[in-house]
């Protein structure tokens, strides 16, 4: 089962005179769980932004399901979900409204409207918020009034509610305590059985700083100064690899 879902072909990204991504080639296969390692400023966030189409690379091509990203329609692009490092929630909306924003892609304008007026159904949103261990007292609180870890989990719930098969997550475990980290990790990598009918397995690329969380990943990618230094099976990860990138 080696069908590629996401592919980067010779990607470079230049900002002013800095080469932030440097000739990156990467194939992500269906069902793979990949950890993305690299020190601060190495280009992890930029790489994720290129993968989800937010940043257009200066050079090279991004392919989703073997088709150029530019040519895909909205529905196909929405198969990717992203958890941003800086969360990017809408501060003035409530937690549940923000989570419902994840459903905007599969619903019409009327849904968006009802969501803002607070008269849409929040059933699904609450289900995912509960899975993220969010207490129901914060459901209708504005984002700006939540704690760091609560905001983090709202962003995660917004991503989960999209039920996408491809997850890009940028340091999703920030601000979470050890117990929550395990729960969230299982949710993101779909290790828990949600009684769903069998779908194609989830593909995930997660940028990480904590090496003790690598256990559930199949592959590890090391990036430094915008270049991929290694792209290997987790079992093959040696100390020498880490020394190269940190």
């Amino acid at each position: 089962m080696n069908n590629t879902v996401l592919e980067l072909e010779n990607i470079s990204y230049k900002y002013k005179n800095d080469l932030i991504l440097n000739k990156i080639n990467l194939k992500i296969n269906s069902g793979e769980k990949i950890a993305l390692l690299g020190k601060s400023g190495s280009g992890k966030t930029t790489l994720i932004s290129v993968l989800n189409g937010t940043i257009k690379p200066t050079q090279g091509e991004v392919k989703l399901f073997n088709e150029s990203f530019e040519e895909l329609d909205r529905k196909q692009k929405s198969k990717i979900t992203t958890i941003w490092q800086d969360l990017r929630l809408i501060e003035d909306l409530s937690a549940e409204q923000n989570v419902n924003c994840g459903l905007l892609a599969e619903n019409n304008f009327y849904f968006a409207f009802k969501n803002l007026l607070n008269i849409s159904s929040f059933k699904k949103a609450h289900k995912y918020m509960k899975l993220c261990r969010l207490h129901n007292s914060i459901y209708d609180k504005k984002i700006r009034k939540l704690s760091g870890g609560q905001k983090q989990r709202v962003a995660i719930a917004r991503s989960l509610i999209q039920e996408s098969n491809i997850l890009l997550a940028d340091e999703p475990f920030n601000n979470l305590d050890p117990k929550l980290i395990t729960t969230i990790k299982n949710l993101l990598l779909e290790n828990v059985d949600k009684n769903n009918t069998k779908k194609s397995p989830k593909t995930a690329l997660v940028a990480l700083h904590r090496l003790d969380l690598l256990n559930d990943f199949d592959k590890v990618i090391g990036i430094r100064d915008g270049k991929i230094f290694f792209n290997i099976k987790r079992n093959n990860l040696k100390k020498i690899h880490l020394e190269k990138i940190y």
Partner: peptide, 25 residues
């Protein structure tokens, strides 16, 4: 915030839904 625009954009909602959600407040 340009970043919340990017995140709504990445969800790939219909354009009018994105617009409404962002400008509402």
């Amino acid at each position: 915030d340009y970043k919340s625009f990017e995140s709504i954009n990445q969800i790939n909602a219909p354009k009018f839904s994105s617009l409404l959600t962002l400008i509402w407040n």
